[in-house]
Amino acid sequence: MTTRQKKRRRPRQQQGISTSQILIVVGVAVLAIGLLVILNSRPQSAAVSSLAYETGVTPEGEPYKGSPDAPLQLVEYSDFLCGHCGNFADTLNALGPDYIETGKLQVIYRNFAFLAPESVQAAQAAECALDQGADKFWQYHDLLFANRGTGMGAYSKPKLKAYAQQIGLDTTTFDACLDSGAKAGEVQADLDEGKSQGVEATPTWFLNGQIIRGALPESDLRQLFDSLLSQGS
């Protein structure tokens, strides 16, 4: 190959990418990311559902749903800021008609507010809701999880008070309870109790006394419940 030929080849090698090709790639990239952003920013359902199961408070003062005589007892340590806890709560709600409403499963909620100051604030607010009834606690619980991560300070005091109003709590009592920090001791005691039982992260739950760490998908949970029920536990 002569020097002249070599000089001719170089520009041709570099003529691979044209401005229009670059613009097409930019367009595709922007469209793809736009689509991902739309998919990612799904609106949160903040609907307040009515409860179709028995609720109450254990002798230790913890809220429960489902019959206290149920063969399966699930004690859940949870943090309202924790996404996996929210997913787990959704899963338990989905299993409600088959297990909770049929008297097979009792779910007891305990705070393990360890992620951030807003976790503690949300846990205290849930305890304040519990003062107005176990059914109100579970409605508030569902509403908190439905609103997790939906905006700056999802569990700021004004928002926590707004959620209380949304489910029809006595706001004067609720606001006074939250503002006074009256539930700080209870939330801290729950955290200490969880730690003493080996809880390190959330969700951690005890199914008939056996510790299980992390959320399980609905199918696995159903399988687990059914296997325990068939053993007659």
Partner: peptide, 15 residues
């Protein structure tokens, strides 16, 4: 715990 809050937020997954 900020990393966990971000990692476990509703925005940490798409479908």
């Amino acid at each position: 715990h900020d990393c966990d809050i971000v990692q476990q937020s509703v925005y940490s997954e798409i479908g």
